[in-house]
Computed example of a mutant assay.
Amino acid sequence: MDFISIEQLVSGERVARKALEFGRGVPDPGGWPSGWTLGPQEAVAREKLKLEEEKRKKLERFNSSRLTLDNLTDLENLVQRRRKKRQRHKVPPREPESGAEPQPQVPLEPVGLETFLKAAAENQEALIDKYLADGGDPNAHDKLHRTALHWACLKGHRQLVNKLLAAGAAIEVRDLLDRTPVFWACRGGHLDILKRLLNQGAQVNAQDKEGDTALHEAVRYGHHKATKLLLLYGAKLGMKNVASQTPVQLARDWQRGIRDALQAHVGHPRTRC
């Protein structure tokens, strides 16, 4: 039996093509008999041969792909090809994302009263600015005497409230039910706007046609923080409306109604405890 040295395996020499005493057939093209089980050293040597062969092929491919620059013309051609390649792969400028808010544009046409009031409710400052710049009346109102300040206070548009006040909007303007912007701010529960109006001198004890005060309104809509703020600014607990209800009684009736509703469902088959 012939033995193969490690040196022969590493150097790439082929094994003689002969049948071994314990194997039959012709060795495979790689130089190893078909029935031969490699030992650890032979397996390592064969793996090294494979790696050396792969390195050799890569080196041949690299050498064959290299450019020869024999003269200045070859260099210019190479620069032109690379320049065209960069232009093909040049990243186009990014377009603004669809989710980004578009910048408001100042309208060219005059803004009418209806558009002005709608813009106050929807916080469209560009339309408000155009209306005021054209000399529009900040205290203009609709058929129910609702002004832009009423809508801005109800919707919680603080910056718009400041802009309207700076433009001369009346802080005690009343709608058809004699409700001032303070009422509308209480209904919306917007503390920052309510505080701004009170600091500007708005009356805290003004009553509407039903005798309600802003404190009644805050209690009715369950805005306890607005209730506390009005009390800090001097709102009176004993003011009665046309139904002879004070804010305290209104709160008690509100709580009693909730309690009665809860008690009515105690023991109900659909009620889950």
Rank of each mutant, 00 (worst) to 15 (best):
A251K: 07
Y221S: 00
E21N: 07
F62Y: 12
D208A: 06
C186H: 07
E114C: 07
R252E: 06
H223W: 06
E42C: 03
V242G: 01
C153E: 05
E60M: 10
D260E: 15
V15C: 04
H223F: 03
L232I: 11
T37N: 06
A185P: 02
G257W: 06
T115V: 09
V111M: 01
Q8F: 07
T271A: 10
L198Q: 10
S64W: 09
H268A: 13
Q159W: 05
F183Y: 12
E95D: 12
L75S: 12
N241W: 04
L51N: 04
V44P: 00
A43K: 14
N205G: 11
I4F: 07
A218N: 04
R83I: 12
Q200T: 15
E76T: 13
R272S: 07
N199I: 08
G136E: 08
A126P: 00
A121V: 03
V106S: 13
K84A: 12
Q203I: 13
R196D: 13
G267M: 11
P92M: 01
L67S: 13
R220H: 06
D74F: 04
E76C: 05
A100W: 15
N123Q: 02
A121L: 04
D142H: 09
V204P: 03
A206P: 00
L229A: 12
C273E: 13
L176T: 11
K90Q: 15
T180C: 11
A45D: 06
L69R: 11
G156D: 09
P269D: 04
L154I: 06
G188I: 11
Q263P: 00
W32D: 02
P181I: 10
L176Y: 14
K225L: 14
E101G: 02
V111Q: 05
K90L: 08
G35K: 11
E13F: 04
D70Q: 15
A121I: 04
A169P: 06
Q105M: 03
L262K: 11
E52I: 01
G189P: 09
G23Y: 07
K84I: 04
P102D: 03
Q249W: 04
L9Y: 10
H150T: 09
I193K: 04
P104E: 13
E114R: 13
T180P: 05
G201M: 09
N162E: 15
R196A: 13
T147D: 08
L67A: 13
E122Y: 05
A170Y: 14
L49K: 09
L177V: 08
V26D: 02
L191R: 15
I171A: 10
R174C: 14
L160C: 03
P102M: 02
G135A: 03
L262S: 01
I4P: 00
R256I: 02
N205W: 08
L72I: 15
L72K: 13
A226Q: 07
D28H: 02
A121W: 07
P102C: 00
L154N: 08
A120I: 04
K57P: 00
Q255G: 00
V10I: 15
A202L: 10
M239G: 00
A152H: 07
N77K: 11
N241Y: 06
Q87K: 15
L232H: 13
Q80N: 13
Q249P: 00
A119Q: 03
K48G: 10
N199A: 09
P29Y: 01
Y131P: 03
Q255T: 05
L9W: 14
G238I: 11
P110E: 02
V242D: 12
A264V: 03
G201R: 08
L132E: 08
R146S: 12
K58D: 05
D175N: 14
Q41L: 15
